[in-house]
């Protein structure tokens, strides 16, 4: 069976093998950089770091899928921003006067502002995609359950419905292909309507299973199994700490600035470039530490 690109598949990378907390902290630190920095240099750097981490963790499909979605979304944002915002000194296309909306000029600055917004969304989507493919949702729910039982129940239902709905959609698409030429063709909207209607039934079945497992029982859940942690926890936490430090230092230093209007102003200072170069290197730390450890162990075994 082919899984959804974003489905969690157990693996052996540091992100898979680490405890849930350090893995979330590592990916969350790059998402934080995406939220905090406004400039394209730092955003591109955070995005590159996540692509690198995803590829090194074996989540290439998730990275490619999220980039595809992000690109589509970014193009949409660029187009909408260009049509809605007419500020900026560099007019690329001079439009007509439209009632209420004013003059429909398309400026270089509004295009650039839309692109940077799209880049920011891409960073967040990448972080989520790598998280989704590499971090065990059972571990996350176990962390969540003692503090937010209802939210954990909802999250479990959603987590389970993703692969179920994905499989349902694949079958519905195949059904649409199998229809004879004399039957009404099925468009995308009809297919999605049918998927939503079917998903409600499937969600009821999954919810019944959750009910049977005891999700509605009062009282605290059992203590988690004592975890000895993972050798990958420390490098992940260290990398997360370093990225957080970059965010703090960069913000304090005003690095990565970006002001699109009236004329494009992108911070290309040394501090920005230095911090941007550091982020992908930090993303590689847990993987480099793992590789070094493996080399040491191999060397020890051979000796």
């Amino acid at each position: 069976m082919r899984h959804s690109a974003l489905a969690y598949v157990p693996g052996n990378s540091p992100l898979h093998a680490a405890s849930t907390g350090p893995a979330i902290a590592f990916l969350g630190s790059f998402a934080l950089a995406g939220f905090v920095f406004a400039g394209p240099i730092m955003l591109a750097s955070a995005g590159l770091a996540l692509v690198l981490a995803g590829l090194l963790a074996g989540a290439g499909r998730a990275v490619r899928a999220s980039l595809r979605y992000a690109l589509t979304l970014a193009l949409l944002i660029i187009a909408v921003n260009a049509l809605v915002v007419h500020r900026g000194a560099t007019i690329l296309i001079r439009g007509d006067e439209v009632p209420l909306l004013g003059r429909m000029d398309v400026t270089l600055e509004s295009l650039a502002a839309g692109a940077v917004l799209g880049l920011r969304i891409a960073v967040v989507m990448l972080a989520f995609a790598v998280y989704s493919a590499c971090v065990d949702p059972d571990g996350v729910l176990r962390l969540l359950r003692p503090v937010a039982r209802r939210s954990a129940l909802t999250a479990t239902l959603v987590a389970r419905m993703v692969p179920v709905a994905s499989a349902d959609l694949a079958r519905l698409r195949e059904g649409a292909e199998l229809r004879g030429p004399g039957a009404t063709p099925v468009g995308r909207s009809a297919l999605l309507r049918r998927l939503v209607a079917g998903s409600l039934d499937r969600a009821v079945d999954v919810a019944a299973t959750l009910e049977l497992r005891g999700h509605s029982l009062p009282g605290p859940p059992g203590r988690p199994r004592p975890s000895r942690g993972s050798l990958d926890d420390a490098p992940l936490l260290a990398a997360a700490g370093l990225v957080a430090l970059v965010v703090v230092v960069g913000t304090a230093a005003g690095a990565g600035g970006f002001d699109p209007y009236p004329g494009l102003a992108v911070d290309l200072g040394v501090s920005t470039l230095a911090l941007a170069a550091i982020l992908p290197a930090y993303a590689a730390i847990p993987f480099a530490v793992r590789a070094a450890r493996a080399r040491r162990e191999l060397g020890g075994a051979l000796a």
């Binding site: 176990r142 499989a167 079945d205 999700h215 059992g222 203590r223 988690p224 004592p226």
Partner: peptide, 28 residues
């Protein structure tokens, strides 16, 4: 139940078997 697909809610088999006990407060 009849349909196997909607009867599992966890990522791994061990977690699925453990879940009803965990939700009942059974120790690790």
């Amino acid at each position: 139940a009849q349909e196997p697909e909607t009867q599992v809610v966890s990522t791994t088999v061990a977690a699925e078997i453990e879940l009803p006990l965990e939700l009942r407060g059974v120790g690790p």
